[in-house]
Design a protein around this nucleic acid. Structure first.
Lengths: 344, 344
DNA sequence: CTGAAAGCGCTTACAG
DNA sequence: CTGAAAGCGCTTACAG
């Protein structure tokens, strides 16, 4: 059976174009990059030759020569988490508009995978990286910075003080949510927290603990690992060990989703039996039953900030690292109510 | 204010390593790539020099020299659609395992953006591209193929017969769903369809029409453009013009979500007033109220197939283009019931 | 404005 | 097994 693939077309090079247009490769490069002036006559011939040969510049070569590549790395811990999906999408938008491509790096909360990706990004000489770290103190982060690459920490801080940061005031936000629950009459409030060691999760736990402490209440925390299944499991543990709970705060949207599933499986009604507040306001937040009360992050705005910052660095801005902190917004829907009758 | 950035560290090159280890650059390259044998003594010296200099190979150079780059392009029409997010994620997994990176290209259903990205991918000389086309007959697809790059159409077919395809039997799947609704007693079934011209959407519409025709029923279709808002709007139009409808099929998950929102805003209860089936079974499908009856695509499997196929092509397999068609699976949950009492 | 030449940092036949 | 040399396809000082 004969292959239907045609003889692989040889790719024209800048030399082929130059020969056909009867100019030097340098001139072709100039019309290609449109920076210096080229006589109209030459330009026309070059353009014609490009057209005729179907020439497409080889970026591998120009990348090497220019020693930079119009590419950004976006390192996230879970691309299936709508929070990060939205961020990736916003970054892609902004990057595309500036002629940059984006390399998506999914670390699965694994320090190893993060390490590998950061090394890759260094080897690839990308212009910069937006990083939501799985491991905040990875030495590879410093190495990127050493190499002069821009690094913007996103959503979670990194240890290296030279990286910029765009994140959210988690402590204050969660503390306010707890206060809101207390205002509704709750005295037993649990938290399904993120894995320790990640600043966003740690701060949300901190906000929760502060909120409880401010009202003299006892905390009850379970680790849900920022995943759907973890959330389901953690809320179960929490209710088993603390049946008195009348409200639970979930530290991210995936755990909230899993938690709701777990609650419904146990026959726990929301908000009648248990009030729920979830950090993040994903697109399905208003559509689950009951519509979720959430602590929304301004993801799009965060992503836009991060990309702008990154491009400023790429463009040579060497001023002090920035720490841009945005606020969480409490969006009250129907998953919170007063504690059930008969609660302690 | 002094910049905290240190003098930008000069990057060691293979030449620096060679000098330090007192060998030739060729030898360094050999231990780096581990293909040819190098004397133990030399190897040790090279490794030591790499360590001491913190050398990280410049992939731009090796890419150029090798004339290929360990990178895949994944072109999707909407990365925020969980269906594609999951696919991207699966592709990233498989690619990472093989040492490939993935360039994520979001086209927003725009033919222009698709064109730009495909040209970019050609210029970048990626090994191959997995493409869920916004424009099936874009000439750039043929150009990639001409250049010897692997192209696997994903989820939607492309016109060029040389591309492989991994998709789903939409016609049969949706027809079966319609039959199921008819079995429940429905006689007035509407569809919120995708934008015309995209094979997946066209096939789902076709399956719907066939299913209705098989039972002598009248169709009622509105275009929801595969987006959340479109779904909300389309279901409204549908109910305005066809108040007799007792069931609606949505052609993808985003439109289903929007549709549910729109229905709840109109006070239409699911499934009491209206039964709903949605194509795709996103992670929130079982958690909305009521839990959705869906037509699930085996996304993970599709993505795995696509990547395997792609790598086979990258590895030189020039056999006939494949068309791998998987089946949709009807997952019955609670959003379908018998038609409301009093329905025509 | 234009071209010849050097060079980006690797890899890989080719000799030895 | 090892090294010298050529070359991947561009860009960019440097002359003219």
């Amino acid at each position: 059976m004969k292959s239907i693939y045609p003889a692989r077309r040889e790719r024209a090079t800048i030399g082929d174009v130059a020969a056909r247009a009867d100019v030097s490769p340098a001139t072709v490069s100039r019309v290609l990059n449109g920076v210096e002036n080229v006589q109209e006559d030459y330009r026309r011939r070059v353009l014609a030759a490009i057209e005729e040969l179907g020439y497409e510049p080889n970026r591998l070569a120009s990348n090497l020569r220019r020693r930079r590549v119009a590419m950004l790395g976006v390192v996230v811990s879970d691309i299936e988490n709508p929070h990060f999906t939205e961020a990736v999408r916003a970054v892609e938008d902004a990057a595309f508009a500036r002629g940059y491509r984006v390399l998506v790096c999914n670390t699965d909360e694994s320090a190893d995978k993060q390490r590998e990706y950061l090394k890759l990004l260094a080897a690839e000489r990308v212009a910069g990286v937006i990083l939501s770290p799985s491991q905040a103190d990875a030495p590879e982060i410093g190495e990127l910075l050493d190499l002069g690459m821009a690094v913007v920490a996103f959503d979670r801080a990194v240890t290296d003080p030279r990286a910029d940061l765009v994140a959210v005031n988690n402590v204050e936000g969660v503390e306010a949510a707890v206060t809101q629950l207390v205002g509704l009459g709750h005295r037993s409030i649990g938290m399904v927290a993120g894995p320790p060691g990640i600043t966003s999760g740690d701060e949300r736990r901190e906000g929760y603990l502060r909120g409880l402490a401010a009202h003299g209440l006892e905390p009850a925390v379970a680790d849900g690992g920022f995943r759907i299944d973890g959330g389901r499991q953690a809320v179960g543990e929490l209710l088993d060990s603390h049946p008195e709970l009348t409200a639970v705060v979930f530290a991210n949207n995936l755990m909230t989703l899993g938690g709701l599933h777990g609650l419904s499986a146990r026959g726990v009604r929301v908000p009648d039996d248990l009030s729920v507040i979830g950090v993040d306001d994903p697109f399905w937040g208003a559509l689950v039953s009951p519509p979720l009360t959430t602590l929304a992050q301004p993801v799009r705005e965060m992503a836009t900030c991060a990309v702008e910052l990154l491009f400023r660095r790429v463009d040579g801005d060497r001023s002090e690292p920035e720490r841009i902190m945005l606020d969480l917004e409490l969006r009250s829907r129907s998953s919170c109510g007063p504690p059930r009758a008969g609660a302690a």
